[in-house]
């Protein structure tokens, strides 16, 4: 499978990465080179094979329903949450106004 410039532009938009026209043009052969190479996977007979879910046999552990049982994974840490915010006001994160 291969991509054209329109697809590259669409993918960049889905991924929220602004790209210029030149960058889009440059990405077309680059991505096609890589995608052409991974296409060889199509040769592999995978009939009856399940996709990998856990690389090492392990079962999903769940937690008990306890608030802030571990301070590292609990709430009540607003200062830590906001410490690196590019724009925080009144305890909120601020972003350019969204019109819904």
């Amino acid at each position: 499978m291969s991509v054209d410039k329109e697809t590259v532009t669409k993918i960049a938009s889905l991924a929220r990465i602004a790209i210029s026209d030149d960058e889009a043009n440059a990405l077309v052969p680059e991505l096609n080179n890589i995608l052409g190479w991974v296409d060889q996977l199509g040769e592999v007979d995978v009939s009856g094979v399940e996709p990998m879910t856990a690389v090492i046999p392990n079962e999903l552990r769940m937690r008990e329903d306890i608030i802030n049982a571990d301070p590292l994974t609990g709430g009540g840490v607003r200062d830590k949450i906001l410490a690196n915010a590019p724009d925080a006001e009144d305890g909120f994160f601020a972003v350019p106004k969204v019109i819904e």
Partner: peptide
């Protein structure tokens, strides 16, 4: 539930903004 689906922060309604947020939720 008392705590969130994937973190230990509280689910209680009406708290101060971002006070019931874990590092995971953020």
């Amino acid at each position: 539930s008392q705590s969130k689906l994937f973190s230990g922060s509280s689910t209680e309604f009406g708290a101060q903004p971002n006070s019931q947020v874990s590092l995971i939720d953020a």
